[in-house]
């Protein structure tokens, strides 16, 4: 077992996960805003932000799908040690993490059922950079409109059309994150 497997978790889990969760919640409640998140030092290729989100939200109850390069021994071992989350394929995951290209196609993830729309996957999308420019966002959580650099416009429009079903997205880059719930209109 490698040293990096055991390190890089929260040193003070209760307090660090509380701060990390507030960043995730603010991002999900206010699409288009960029939030700082810290605490985790995951092995490559995971960003600190993606690692912190995983430590904050995942445990033995949440099947996780590692997409593309994220599905490597280092990440598998790190996630297993720190969260105990079972690994699974995209069709049964609650959380998925990877680059946009690796996560696609989106049609394979659970979008919830009409009676339980909450039983849908949350995708953690690793991005090169996050900026408040590009696609225009509107909807709940946004006063008038906001802008966010998104890997696609059409995919999010199709996701919005499924409402109240659909996927929710957390976009991560370095130690920053933004979120795009299914309610957000993208143009």
């Amino acid at each position: 077992m490698q040293a990096e497997t055991l390190s890089g978790g929260f040193a003070n889990p209760a307090v660090q996960s509380a701060h990390a969760f507030r960043s995730v919640m603010e991002a999900m409640a206010r699409p288009g805003t960029l939030q700082d998140i810290a605490g985790a030092e995951p092995p490559a290729p995971l960003s600190k932000a993606a690692g912190s989100v995983l430590l904050t939200l995942c445990d033995t109850d949440t099947p996780v799908y590692l997409a593309g390069d994220a599905d490597c021994d280092a990440v598998r071992a790190w996630l297993a040690f720190h969260t105990g989350a079972p690994l699974t394929g995209p069709s049964h995951c609650m959380f998925a993490v990877g680059t946009w290209e690796a996560l696609n196609p989106l049609s394979v993830y659970p979008v919830g059922t009409s009676e339980y729309p909450d039983r849908s996957a949350t995708l953690i999308v690793e991005c090169e950079a996050l900026t408040q420019s590009g696609a225009t966002l509107s909807g709940p959580g946004i006063k008038t409109n906001a802008a966010l650099s998104l890997p696609s416009v059409q995919a999010f429009q199709q996701n919005r059309a499924l409402f109240p079903l659909g996927l929710d997205f957390i976009l991560t880059s370095g130690s920053q994150l933004a979120a795009l719930p299914r309610t957000t209109e993208v143009s």
Partner: peptide, 18 residues
């Protein structure tokens, strides 16, 4: 912490489906 994670996941889904 496990209980808080469960509640936090519910809060995020709640925010996503107002």
């Amino acid at each position: 912490e496990q209980t808080k994670r469960m509640i936090r996941r519910a809060i995020l889904k709640g925010l996503a489906i107002p």
